[in-house]
Nucleic acid binder design. Structure first.
Lengths: 147, 147
DNA sequence: TATTGTTATACTCTATAACTATA
DNA sequence: TATAGTTATAGAGTATAACAATA
């Protein structure tokens, strides 16, 4: 039975529940990633490169909403682990293009199905149309954030 | 015009958008809290105590989904700032009961309206019924997280 | 024995800012 | 001048685990 909230308290409570749900889901996903020796930000980088290789560090930073200094350190560690590779951009000698190594691709191939399975089980709580709606709501909320 | 996604990609994309929206909103709220010298976790503690004073550190930890060791350090810093107060529980000498100081209450009184204004502006992107729906979805998703 | 809180330790992610090399 | 990346630094929040006091 759905809880109905009064308008005055609805916004705040929705945000609190939003944050709570995000935290719980993120931790569950993090827990699953640990079995692969990955953190969430590292997985995000692997997944982004799996989707589109050859982007620059700057582009990666913008997609993941972090600074380039942050990405630089992340890539240092991930390159040391043999998961990703920096290749000089032949047309702009300031820039690096980022690629997955074979090992990085294999690692992503092991971790991604886990994540999808977990997400699938959780999102089973919503019907197809509800998921579409949620996706929409998220987009509208993101657009409504100023700055 | 709403974007329609194919079922196969919907779950993953919804999660990615979910995480992205949460991050953006949390940073915007954090930015506003900085003007009061507060972090998000600190605000969460003030708000929790503003809602219900006299809880123990353990109870606070459980509500905020963090460990008691974490809370202990947070309260150390916030007590040093003069925002909260530990009072020994007369009935259980192991426990502390937590209270806002006058200054903590004033600080919360300054920071909370900011946060509510910001949230109000962002959540204006959703109609009343949509907010209710989102609140519901979040509760169902949280319940679907195992562990 | 179990629980509350404390302490010590360590780690990850994050940001800022100054620096370099190129554009 | 502006941009891509690097480096150094700092800080917050988080967890784990061992410990003390009390229940």
């Amino acid at each position: 039975m759905p809880v109905i909230l009064r308008p005055e308290e609805l916004t705040l409570k929705t945000w609190v529940q939003f944050a709570r749900t995000f935290t719980r889901m993120a931790r569950r996903l993090d827990q699953a990633l640990e079995t692969h020796g990955l953190s969430v930000p590292q997985f995000d980088i692997l997944a982004t490169l799996g989707f589109q290789e050859g982007i620059t560090q700057q582009e990666l930073a913008q997609r993941l909403l972090v600074t380039k200094g942050n990405i630089c350190g992340m890539i240092d560690r991930m390159e040391a682990n043999g998961w990703v590779e920096r290749r000089p951009d032949p047309e702009d000698r300031r820039a690096n293009r980022l690629f997955l190594t074979d090992e990085g691709r294999k690692l992503l191939g092991r971790a991604m199905p886990d994540q999808q399975l977990l997400l699938g089980r959780i999102f089973d709580a919503l019907k197809e149309g509800e998921k579409q709606l949620l996706y929409q709501f998220m987009g509208r909320l993101e657009d409504a954030v100023e700055g």
